[in-house]
């Protein structure tokens, strides 16, 4: 063993996000400029960093989730993509995607690593672990 790193995930590739949505059975809609949410910021939860209440409801692309009435907005900012969504229970997104839309972030990370690792000539093995998904890259 040589070293262990913890990474804060950033979404920076739209095609991979689209593929991650497909792997979870979600519908990625390019160029949808608004996403469905409660419609009014009530001030009872913190806003995402670098976003104001006026930004909510607007997006560059959107994700439709089967069984959920609300949608996820995908917003491009400074070369990265941010996920904006309303986690109010009845909207159904947290039930489908987990806290913080973690399942979508997980699927994105898995896709991103698999695609790039194969391009670099690594063999990729995927398995389920206690805490989530494990990918093992070997030459």
């Amino acid at each position: 063993m040589s070293h262990v790193s913890k990474i804060e995930l950033e979404i920076n590739d739209l095609e991979t996000l689209e593929a991650a949505c497909a792997s979870l059975g979600l519908q990625f809609v390019r160029n949808q400029k608004t996403y469905t949410w409660y419609g009014e910021y009530m001030g009872d939860t913190p806003l995402p960093e670098d976003f104001s209440a006026n930004d909510l409801g607007k997006c560059d692309h959107a994700v439709r989730v089967p069984g959920a009435t609300y949608e996820v907005g995908v917003v491009r900012k400074d070369g990265k993509y941010f996920l904006l969504w309303d986690f109010w229970r009845d909207g159904g997104l947290e039930r489908a995607l987990g806290p913080g839309a973690g399942k979508l972030k997980q699927a994105y990370a898995v896709e991103r690593v698999k695609r790039e690792a194969r391009l670099k000539g690594y063999r990729v093995q995927q398995s389920k672990s206690v805490k989530g998904i494990r990918l093992v890259l070997s030459m």
Binding site: L104, Y108, A109, K131
Partner: peptide, 14 residues
């Protein structure tokens, strides 16, 4: 290279 990705979207590389 081992990558663990949790359902919260946390990534650990070993």
């Amino acid at each position: 290279i081992i990558i663990d990705i949790t359902e919260e979207g946390e990534v650990k590389i070993e």
